[in-house]
Amino acid sequence: MKQQPGNEVLLRFLSRSANEGFARTAAACFVAQLDPTLEEVNDIKTAVSEAVTNCIVHAYPNCLGPVQMRLRLFEDRTVEVVVKDSGVGIADIEQARTPLFTTGNGERSGMGFTIMESFMDQVKVRSRLGKGTTVVMRRRLSSRAAAPV
């Protein structure tokens, strides 16, 4: 049976670069109720920053568009982050996930997906050209005494 989330939040914002900081700070605030370690919070903030930056840089290269971020907390201390856009989509997901690959200019490192993969337990990417991209990331937090959801 599928686990039901203990708590959930849904945010929708425009693909402005100022919202990169907003999204990762909002994620950190929401996850704080599970009493994560500082390193766990920082890892989740970093992964969120990468996923949201991808929407801003790649999904909507020449315009602004909606970005949706859903955060869910599960009883087993799993944090799920879903970042979804309705942008241009990714032609080759495997290539996009390859370290150092970027369609951006010299200002991008091509390490976004690599960072998401190293900082989260699981990263899934679904994309359709012209329809958009959804990134689902999960991270199970370490057990801490007295940490109710």
Binding site: R24, N42, K45, T46, S49, E50, T53, G106, E107, R108, S109, M111, G112, T114, I115
Partner: peptide
């Protein structure tokens, strides 16, 4: 106080 992969590009440059 925070750095993501954009910082990698800054340092590498």
């Amino acid at each position: 106080t925070f750095m993501d992969s954009s910082g990698i590009a800054v340092v590498l440059r």
